[in-house]
Structures are given as structure tokens and as C-alpha cells.
């Protein structure tokens, strides 16, 4: 692969005595949607979180190997971890809006990076809310608590909030699993739009969703990568038995 955005080599991750990620080697293409597939408990979330080192928050984690992002190994870098995290927006399985109003949810990331000018913030808040098709729904109640939004709206708010810190990468862990079909569709369409400017990594259990939007696929099983490659190749012509049976719905 030419100039992958992220290159993971020999990544091993233990929590306590449990070997959760085993010899992960993978390359993630820039400005494409990479979908991570695999049955429940195979380590998709853990792999995703190790990319912005949220796995550091676990007791007793041991990580070895390297994760190169823009030619910098984020596991050993001397740079501040918050700088690395700012490069990646995170969308979780269910929305976690910040305990503040809608406006401040978006402005938060900008404020902590020192952007405090009111006019600038107003503009940016509107821009990002428009980007996730939320502006029209909330423009008259920007000062209402984010808690008052529906789950689908909250998830779009979380996407907008992540985009507002100007990342290059979007990490999404089953971002539509708690959403209604319409909100899910909005998020999917946004992802397709956003891949022009962002590298997107999406974990999903929904095979049809993966087929719809994936450019690149990583299939995991019990902590290992079984197969990876361009979406067309993996979906049309999987090489491994495990991948085949997963696609046939033999296990989830």
C-alpha cells in the first residue's frame, strides 16, 4: 500500500494475563473507509482504542509493537498524548454528549485548544452542526442542554464535536448500533462524504453496512487479523475459511 495513514506492526496487547490483540499487522489507507469486522469479543474495540491510546486507561495493560501514524510511532512518541488524540475523532457505540449545552459541546474542543473568540466560535459551531445535518434542527435552541436531544441527534452532535477539533482520522465503534434507521443512514452518508478529507475507521456488526461503505476491510477473529484487503476483494473472493463462514452468517 502506498503511503498508508496508519501502519500497525507486531502489535500485541495484554490486559492482565489475557492476550487480547495478537501480532496485529495492518495498514490503513488514507482518506478511505476501513471497516473492521469480526465476531463479538474478537478485539475490534480494543484495536480501535489502542489507536488513540485510550487503552492506557485500563489497569495492567501491556502493549508492544508499533503504531505509525504519519510516520510517528504513537506508542513511543515523546509528544503529548493529548496532541495525538486531537488528531482522531472518536464516535462510540452510544452517544456521550458532554454535560453542557449544545453550543458548548461543539465549542469545548476549540476552547481547550485556546480558541476563545466568540465570533470565531459562533461560525465554527454553525459550520460543524451544518456538516452533520443538525443545524436546522437545533439552531433555535443552541443553549439547551445536549441531554435534551434525541439519541440520533446526540450521535450526530458527537460527530460534529469530534470534527470540530480538526482531526485527520475518525474512529467509529459501531456508531449506528443504538440509532434508528434514518439517523443511521445520515451517519453513513456523512461518512461517505467525509472520506474525501478524513481517514475513517469503522467497526461494525452490520454486514450490509460494511458492504455499502467499506473501501478496505479488516477481518478479525479471537484477537488476530485473519484477512485484510480492498473491500471488493474481501467480499467477493475471501481466501480464508473463517472469513467465508462469517460472511455466510455462521457466527456473529
Amino acid at each position: 500500500m502506498e503511503n498508508p495513514k496508519i501502519a500497525i506492526s507486531d502489535l500485541n496487547l495484554f490486559i492482565g494475563k489475557q492476550h487480547i490483540l495478537k501480532n496485529i499487522n495492518a495498514e490503513i489507507p488514507s482518506k478511505k473507509i476501513t471497516v473492521i469486522l469480526g465476531p463479538s469479543g474478537c478485539g475490534k474495540t480494543t484495536l480501535l482504542k489502542s489507536l488513540n491510546r485510550l487503552t492506557d486507561l485500563n489497569t495492567d495493560v501491556k502493549v508492544s509493537g508499533s503504531i505509525m501514524i504519519d510516520n510517528e510511532d504513537i506508542l513511543t512518541t515523546k509528544r503529548d498524548i493529548t496532541d495525538i488524540r486531537k488528531k482522531m475523532g472518536l464516535l462510540a457505540q452510544r452517544p456521550y454528549p458532554l454535560p453542557m449545552n449544545i453550543y458548548n459541546n461543539i465549542a469545548y474542543g476549540l476552547r481547550i485548544s485556546g480558541r476563545k473568540n466568540k465570533r470565531f466560535l459562533d461560525k465554527r459551531v454553525e459550520h460543524y452542526l451544518r456538516q452533520v445535518n443538525l443545524w436546522e434542527e437545533v439552531k433555535d435552541r443552541l443553549r439547551d442542554p445536549a441531554a435534551a436531544l434525541s439519541i440520533g441527534q446526540q450521535q450526530r452532535l458527537c460527530l460534529a464535536r469530534g470534527l470540530a477539533v480538526d482531526p485527520d482520522i475518525i474512529l467509529a465503534d459501531e456508531p449506528t448500533s443504538a440509532l434508528d434507521p434514518i439517523s443511521s443512514q445520515t451517519i453513513e452518508e456523512k461518512f461517505i462524504e467525509l472520506k474525501n478529507n478524513y481517514t475513517i475507521i469503522l467497526v461494525t456488526h452490520i454486514l450490509r453496512q460494511a458492504r455499502r461503505i467499506a473501501d478496505h476491510v479488516i477481518f478479525m477473529y479471537l484477537g488476530e487479523i485473519i484477512e485484510q484487503g480492498p473491500a471488493a476483494q474481501i467480499f467477493e473472493n475471501p481466501q480464508e475459511e473463517k472469513t467465508k463462514s462469517y460472511f455466510q452468517g455462521m457466527f456473529y
Binding site: L54, K86, L90, A92, Q93, Y96, I112, C158, G162, V165
Partner: peptide, 13 residues
């Protein structure tokens, strides 16, 4: 935990 992770992934200390 998700709120902690959200906040940190926005670059908060």
C-alpha cells in the same frame, strides 16, 4: 467510562 474517553479523545487533559 465512555464520557471519560470522549473527553480525552477531544484532546482534554
Amino acid at each position: 467510562r465512555g464520557l471519560l474517553e470522549s473527553s480525552l479523545s477531544l484532546g482534554s487533559t
